[in-house]
Design a protein around this nucleic acid. Structure first.
Lengths: 113, 113
DNA sequence: TCCTTTAGGTCTTTAATACAGACTTAATAA
DNA sequence: TTATTAAGTCTGTATTAAAGACCTAAAGGA
């Protein structure tokens, strides 16, 4: 795991913030929990650019949250690892909070689809 | 609440990602849960710049997560609102996940203190 | 009262990230 | 073998972040 993923912070939240503290990471994980495993799948579900998606998928693979199959080459599948699956409670608590406290209205995160 | 806080996304996670999907927001909330209420307190605990801290505190106030007392002027206290307090389960689930799945080592989020 | 300190910012310049959209390359399908 | 699709990279532009100097209002003390 490269240095930019890990953190010297003695606090697990400080370390986690380096990965989870990104809008696209949260949205990519949402789609992963809904079953998405392909690059172009995320691309069509989110209004994300190819470059940024490639960057975030690499980040999630480097962090051990997603596993790429095959490890190199094209037409890869990105699957949730044990670590990624363990993020489900985090996802659900965010979902619960957003549902309770955030009103709807304003910007879209799906490009309007 | 201004438009840039809210989201047209039908998904509560999509809406929440606009606020929680930021490294500094997560770290500011960590300190808030530990009792921090003052601008210079966050400034000395995190290696954040004044401009970015001011921006994120305004964002959190606009989102209703922190309450500023008094609403204008200097020497303000920033206190967790009900909505902010309701983020504690999110914080704890991130803490639990980071503790379980993220190794220590690499960069610091405290400026070395 | 005036002076000092402190809190809570803003402003400027520079550096890093994000973006759209064109291009590339490898794998599969016809 | 040609076409199509998946999964990228590359290029240029625009936004955001960063450090650090500067500013201003409030509080406290002489």
């Amino acid at each position: 795991m490269p240095a930019y993923i890990t953190s010297r912070s003695p606090c697990p939240v400080g370390r986690a913030s380096r990965i989870l503290g990104d809008r696209w990471v949260i949205l990519i994980l949402r789609e992963a929990f809904l079953g998405e495993q392909r690059f172009d799948g995320w691309l069509s579900r989110l209004s994300i650019s190819r470059a940024v998606l490639a960057d975030r998928l690499n980040l999630l693979v480097d962090a051990g949250i997603l596993e790429r199959e095959p490890p190199t080459g094209k037409r890869a599948l990105y699957m949730l690892s044990d670590s990624g699956t363990a993020l489900k409670p985090v996802y659900q608590s965010i979902q619960k909070w957003g549902d309770m406290w955030l009103p709807v209205g304003g910007h879209s995160d799906t490009g309007g689809q």
